[in-house]
Write a protein that binds this DNA or RNA. Sequence first.
DNA 1: GTGTATAATTAAATCGGTCTAATTGGAGGA
DNA 2: TCCTCCAATTAGACCGATTTAATTATACAC
Lengths: 347, 347
Amino acid sequence: MKKVKLNEIARAAGVSRSTVSLALRGSPLIAKPTAERVREAAQQLGYVYNRTAAALRNRKTHTIGLVEANFKNPFFAAMSESVEREIELRDKALLFVDSAESLERQQKAIQLMLEHGVDGILLCPVKHTTPEHLEILKKAGVPFVLFSRYIPRFDADYVGAANVEGAYQAVRRMIQLGHRKIVFVGGEPFTSPWLDRVKGFKKAMQEAGIELSTHWYFCSEVSVAGGASKVDEVLQIQSTPTAALCYSDTVAFGFMLGLERRGIRPGRDFAVVGFDDLPESKLWRPPLATLACPPSRVGSMATRMLIERLDGDEGPPRRVEIQSILVHRESLCPVMEHGSGITRIDE
Amino acid sequence: MKKVKLNEIARAAGVSRSTVSLALRGSPLIAKPTAERVREAAQQLGYVYNRTAAALRNRKTHTIGLVEANFKNPFFAAMSESVEREIELRDKALLFVDSAESLERQQKAIQLMLEHGVDGILLCPVKHTTPEHLEILKKAGVPFVLFSRYIPRFDADYVGAANVEGAYQAVRRMIQLGHRKIVFVGGEPFTSPWLDRVKGFKKAMQEAGIELSTHWYFCSEVSVAGGASKVDEVLQIQSTPTAALCYSDTVAFGFMLGLERRGIRPGRDFAVVGFDDLPESKLWRPPLATLACPPSRVGSMATRMLIERLDGDEGPPRRVEIQSILVHRESLCPVMEHGSGITRIDE
DNA sequence: GTGTATAATTAAATCGGTCTAATTGGAGGA
DNA sequence: TCCTCCAATTAGACCGATTTAATTATACAC
């Protein structure tokens, strides 16, 4: 049970500790037969490489920090998966924290990562994160890449979806389909994707000369429950909306379930569009129209950008937007010809 | 940008490195005013504690390894969240790997964790894991706890749901409601929860003297798509089933969506029960009956068991089963009185 | 046979805290 | 004044691998 170290191997193989170290790392300095002998001895003794010791000397832990803001969201889960793949390929490890939309937790996580000496950090900042909160990362000199969310007026590497453009596309299509009363449902305000999606939404409405109603956006937790919880509020608007752009597919699912509960059929009585194109979106009844921006692309792009930084890329910060493509499915229906077709339960 | 270390602080505070170390860790050996002075100097200089260096000396990394088998499953995501909470409380870090149901990846993950010197490991073994695969953990002397899945004939700490009992309850209720043709849908075979759920299923059927049809179980990926993909096969059975116990809520969602697509209404024409009681299950249309076993309970229980091991608990391995409670909701309907009520598409 | 170039190996310093054993300083007692 | 005792502080070995500079061994040329 006692841990085997280089010295034991050295003794067993009849060489010095230096030789063992070099041999195990595959250094060309060591003669082949010697290296082979060393490797066998290590194997024999059940040697386990001690990365901690190596890290101390190397000033490299071969560890990447991943700080998620909300990983119960399936989009982030899928993203994390691709991050993992990229990390695994490079024989690195992932230090993981879900800040769960808590600024305090995020800051503690960052501190933790710094203390562990991660080589780099992938961060999706929680709402209300300011440049000052992230200044510590720059001071510490740790390479980091923001993903999914950026911080205004904070110059840093970033990879995320083209949110303004995506929302704009979706709303334009809704308008083409005859909708005029459109709302934006769900999402955490004070995050860049929310602001950008709302921006794209407004832009499309303004270009079409459509006035926004007094209440035209509704914030919520990004989840099925969050979407479901907003249905009543939306239906209480003076002149009932006929379409909703939802912050995410999960929100859209909840919203559709809520509509159905009120006897309103999404995809016929009410148009719904989400964001993310989750695998189940096309299986829904009705299939959910959505803005597709593959989470795996975001994840692997962010990871690769970070790796390049680790490899010494000193260029100015880069901002990469990944295209959001509108996937038109049944839930995105035209407006009903004669009246709204909606029977309000409370009437 | 240069890293501040104990020596710098020592110089600044006019004390020795030892004093700084002791002071920062809050040792009672150091006089209060001195400790305060040291802490201020550290603060001033922007010192970041180097856990790697400490770990080398301490033989403790304050790091826990979490190896998931399938964390795209929301149940695991929720579980991981509670693991994180417990870990965070104790100021430890999480080294995370999703083995994604790949044995090779799992073994590589275990190796990685050992090399990083994690203090303990939480592991949900992938299918086909044998005692031999995990022997390395025992040899290495690293405390570990299995969660959600156990390995037959492998004596180790384990926390998971009461699967046999849960499935048994569900099927008994189905039988009480008049169902006779019942199938088990979804899930990865060769994992203990699958085997146990199938076992409970069989037990209830046998006790009721109901014969199982030739094809009565259907394996699938644990996801909405997995559930949806099995609908056709289920409906092709000679005498059409009237009820399905699904491996998970996600599978049940997919299965229900598939049924609807075929014009069969779950909760009226077909009874469906899932496992997990996800937050959205009660929001579904119809609300999904399910076996509830809070993922947060599993996660925090497993983590605490591991922590106790780290704290020196040397007792024999413990197996903890967390009760699964049948939550009766609309999707668990009685069998239709006159005929199956199902119009088969292919007839 | 000697000298030199080259290949293979190794000694030893190093990474940054930790912690025990040793040292120092000051209070109090005789 | 000297001694004892205890509190506060510190020197220095240590954790386990890495890596450079130094050393030894080997080959080859003349």
